[in-house]
Design a protein around this nucleic acid. Sequence first.
DNA 1: TATTATCTTGACAATCCCTTGATGATTAAA
DNA 2: TTTAATCATCAAGGGATTGTCAAGATAATA
Lengths: 219, 219
Amino acid sequence: MSRVLLIEDDIEMQKLIQEYLSNYGYKVLSFDKPKSALEILDKESFDIVILDLMLPQMDGFDVCKEIKRKTETPIIISSARGDIGNKIMGFELGADDYLAKPYEPRELILRIEAVLRRVTKNSAVNILDFYIDEPNRVVKIDDYEIDFTKIELEIFLYLIKNRGKILSREQIINSTSLSPDTKNRTVDMHISNIRYKIGDDSKNPKYIKSVWGIGYKFI
Amino acid sequence: MSRVLLIEDDIEMQKLIQEYLSNYGYKVLSFDKPKSALEILDKESFDIVILDLMLPQMDGFDVCKEIKRKTETPIIISSARGDIGNKIMGFELGADDYLAKPYEPRELILRIEAVLRRVTKNSAVNILDFYIDEPNRVVKIDDYEIDFTKIELEIFLYLIKNRGKILSREQIINSTSLSPDTKNRTVDMHISNIRYKIGDDSKNPKYIKSVWGIGYKFI
DNA sequence: TATTATCTTGACAATCCCTTGATGATTAAA
DNA sequence: TTTAATCATCAAGGGATTGTCAAGATAATA
């Protein structure tokens, strides 16, 4: 569960965002005064900060800078629409993303997820028989490096990250850099090649199971 | 197969959405009058409701509240773009997501998937002797995974979700991805196979009872 | 540019499983 | 008890899906 620090002076908006984020499994702590938010940052850690630029007391820019000085927590800035100057400033200040008001709550979720995904990308892990170093695009099995192509690697990672879940061909297409109008059979072909490279047998799979009429599943 | 209840008064729009969702494997039941939709909610269960705020008869807000009162089914509200007031209201009313018209059909699919993912996340439950993880399509009995086919799983889930109720063959056909003109005998066959797989005996059933002349009932 | 690697898709066989008629068993009602 | 309707199950048919080959299209690289 990711922890979110929300700094927003419009109390009504604050409540709405907080409730919405809670529904998506985020733990949200809200402040309308940046001073209080900065204080809590000394004591507790958060996965992400959402900062509204329209703030009393301190200028939003200073708040952002102050947070960056204190911590390494990623920041998403929101402010009134069309304020392009702010947008540029936001990134200069070290903000990780920018959101123009008014925004769809859904949009906020997507941005948060994107930022967290980017930031938390860490180094090699071992999953099952596989050694996976995602940033370096290296997958090994029994110390033997598998020579995946770009798309094969993407599909493989998507499957293994969602192991246990059944993923439809459409999901696979939409979650990788495959063109959205790629035929389903293309996915089958990639799966076939992946299976071959990891030494899996389609008839008696150890890793990638076909779910008839639905999709594929990493066991 | 997820069941969608669509409440939309623009008949043309209704047809378009219905057709689009069908292509993505959703079973859609549409109403232009919310009154009828509310009635059906007493009798049948749905995975998600899509509610258009521009409705006759009852005010859309009241419909939303009424659905939330009756059921726990997640709701996606749609309404004319830019109606920010509605947007906030939507969340206050307990809607799970909000979609501004006009929207891309693809967008609707994404929202539905997102809401369903959130709502059904980690929703593995134990019912009777069964461990049921619906999103991952896993059913276990005594730690042994039952290898249901697509339709068998749908029927099994439909029965167990409505356990205690007698369900006619027609209801079973219409609530699953079985073609509407499927013969009743086909349902019998599926039931027979399900019984076999869960170790049930038709003559002395522990789980699925035949109700002579009417249908089947999960005890 | 030429060459190579990768992606995409049609083709076809193998496989899966849905459907349905047939048959005997079971049930309800006369 | 007899009769007609319904149910359980077998087994065959057939439609849909999947695995993989191979060829062509596209992209990456020398």
